[in-house]
Design a protein around this nucleic acid. Structure first.
Lengths: 243, 243
DNA sequence: AAGTGGTCTAGACCACTTC
DNA sequence: AAGTGGTCTAGACCACTTT
């Protein structure tokens, strides 16, 4: 109990929507209406609506009201395991190399610019389960590169220091046959592996680096969800919803 | 211009954080402090903080303040193309079958319970790029099943009617060799394809259905991002940030 | 005790939509 | 013109953390 009023209002609306009381397209009661019904202020009702809007259940339309949204299950939250259960990265090789054309294009490199290539292997219980290749544009004295190298050489540290200055990361997922060096590192053949390619972008759209990670079947499946996340207070919420 | 004050405050804070002025772990100025500095009320400053908190940049700690978070790029937003550019689903087969053990376990079926199996093929410009198998627990007179069947038989409709009552969808991604029926439908061999498996859950945790989608290389890569999404008003935000 | 965020009030004006 | 959401104010009390 002792849940905030705006959360109780949100829970009540959420349940009505999810149990079919308000099909998609429906207009919900207005802020003023609910403020009256709950004997509270408009601000409090608004907070409840904002909560549901953040969850994607409803959408506000100025001058009209709050409209129930059709479930958008075209967006998923994909999460990778964090640190411990994932395994340990071991830095395998760091080299300064001319990039292949794909990498050069993705990173917007000028002609002849070199890249730092960092290859690491992820191991769990002694088994190699993934291999990661990271390409960073080489610029003399760039703090990013130095930081990357330090991070890569200390395998027990946080895995991805580039991300510390990265505003946004764009990822693609596909099945790909790893290049020979990766196959050797993973001890696998020419079968296709799940590959994630990540492009790290800074504030002004500057490309900080590109990372390709090949996941062996031993890595296990990637996991994602759509709709409500499982939160700490889901239990409490359920109690209140069932009132 | 004419951006709301709370958005300008948020933009200013965001820029300071992202350009390194406030490293992770830093305590930001308090609500009262900023309210004074901007000659505004605490509520408005709060809205700015809430925005940044929703973006994952900061975290509120009662009694302490707002703390800059380390970039969490272990969570990505995975999005599938919507409708038009994706292609068209064609329903290939609908049958009532005993489920294989995997499906039975995932859907928590009781012994001997049948499943409705719906197989659809996704085509884009005449090319089959994906095949989807959906398993729904069969219950006499269940409105969900009837709705599913109707939806599946009208290929131009919205693709996934089950999701209309689904509170949450859990997905796993992996490389898998499709079963014979799917290989036949896609005209492919025994190579591994990118597969997404989705479990649809209702309000009380009830399992509504399971869907397995096999994506051919022609489908293209799946796309995801972490960090700031690209929004409509990103341009405006940039202008204000550069002030 | 002082400062912080968390919740809430009872107003206000604006921009937008509908009638 | 009336109703809606969007923004904002100037207070208030509470729970929590730090000193």
């Amino acid at each position: 109990m002792s849940q905030a009023l705006y959360q109780r209002i949100a829970a009540a609306l959420r349940q009505r929507i999810l149990s079919g009381g308000h099909p998609a397209g429906d207009l919900l009661p207005s802020e003023n209406e609910l403020a009256g019904a709950y004997h509270t202020s408009r601000v409090t009702v608004r907070k409840a609506f904002n909560l549901l809007e953040a969850e994607g259940l409803i959408k506000a339309r100025q001058g009209k009201g709050y409209i129930v949204q059709p479930p958008r299950h075209s967006e998923y939250t994909l999460f990778f395991g964090s640190g411990e259960e994932l395994g340990h990265y071991r830095c395998e090789e760091v080299r300064l190399l001319p990039p292949d054309p794909d990498v050069s294009r993705a990173l917007n490199l000028h002609n002849g610019q070199l890249t730092v290539v960092i290859r690491r292997v992820l191991e769990r219980s002694g088994v190699s389960i993934a291999c990661d290749e990271k390409y960073i544009p080489y610029e003399r004295g760039s703090p990013t590169v130095e930081r990357e190298l330090n991070a890569a050489r200390q395998p027990e540290e946080r895995t991805d220091r580039t991300e510390e200055v990265s505003l946004r990361t764009e990822m693609t997922l596909r099945v790909a046959v790893p290049p020979p060096e990766v196959r050797k590192a993973l001890g696998c053949g020419k079968e296709g592996l799940l590959m994630t390619e990540r492009l790290f972008l800074a504030l002004g759209g500057k490309r900080l680096g590109l990372s390709r990670t090949y996941l062996t079947p031993d890595y296990g499946p990637l996991m994602a969800y759509a709709g409500l996340p499982v939160t700490e207070d889901s239990e409490e919420a359920k109690k209140n919803e069932s009132e």
